[in-house]
Design a protein around this nucleic acid. Structure first.
Lengths: 150, 150
DNA sequence: ATTTTACGTCAGTCATGTTGACTTATCTAT
DNA sequence: ATAGATAAGTCAACATGACTGACGTAAAAT
């Protein structure tokens, strides 16, 4: 049962590099998560973001507000439901997102190369089965929006 | 590049159950990490623990002190080097450790079963290659103490 | 017209991390 | 034998990112 420690060390190092980058902007891991999920899902609503991050709106509000005020994320009222604030990255936000994305991608690509394609399939399968079922459709269901039923 | 999100969701759910358990004791994830590594490595020194957790001694001191005062961990002076405080779980500590260990093991065993042995090998290989090289010997080198050169 | 929903905000608290400065005991090297 | 290095601990101040609870506003749904 080394898996527990494998996960601990891998996750620690996986988040270490981005953390350093973020510190240069005065941001933390919470900002990273917001930038990441807004970057991958432009037009995402606040409540969708909340359900992904599983934090309270008060917690999100602080980091999101900061990112909006400092021009990394912009909000536009929803076309169908004008109560919603659809979130997307600004140019500045996209730049930071790309930097963050790249350091993590590099680490993963390296690990993938060293392990081989078969190992990668196994890696993904185990992680998938490790998470709660509710969130698995985000990865398999390509036709349906991963946020449609929230 | 779904790996980033796979890791996020899997890790979030992986730590979710223990967190609930710990809350009943008034403990947090920091306590969990200390209990875990002391549990797996009885007789570990404070500085070895620090190098694993990569936090400051002041941070560790708070949680470790709590665990010692509340009788989950006991300290004994090192036999060779009496400056050291060798850490190990008390009976009470072992009980909590086992509870925590079990909820995480269950989740992993389930995921392993659903994915198959080959996938497990891939999973472990990718995680291993994802972490910094320094820490990999902890998993492969069985003959040498994983803390000997720190 | 009323209720519900989406979002935001104010206020207070807690857990866990940080830096920096200093102490004590013990080991190591000169 | 003494001087310096190391292991551990402590005090103080601070930052981040979580939390709860209460309340407000605008828009949608009933």
């Amino acid at each position: 049962m080394q898996a527990i420690e494998l996960l601990f060390f891998a996750y620690r190092d996986f988040t270490g590099e981005p953390d350093e980058l973020l510190a240069e902007y005065g941001f933390g891991r919470a900002h990273h998560r917001v930038i990441h999920f807004v970057g991958r899902n432009p037009g995402i609503t606040v409540s969708e973001l909340l359900s992904i991050l599983q934090i309270t709106k008060q917690s999100l509000s602080r980091v999101l507000g900061q990112l909006v005020r400092e021009g990394f994320i912009k909000q536009t009222p929803g076309a169908e439901d004008r109560r919603q604030r659809l979130l997307e990255l600004t140019e500045k936000g996209l730049e930071l997102d790309e930097k963050l994305f790249n350091v993590q991608r590099q680490r993963i690509v390296r690990a993938y190369k060293e392990s081989g394609a078969e190992a990668v399939a196994g890696f993904r399968s185990v992680l998938m089965n490790m998470m709660e079922e509710d969130d698995r459709p985000r990865f398999t269901n390509k036709q349906k929006s991963p946020f449609s039923n929230r």
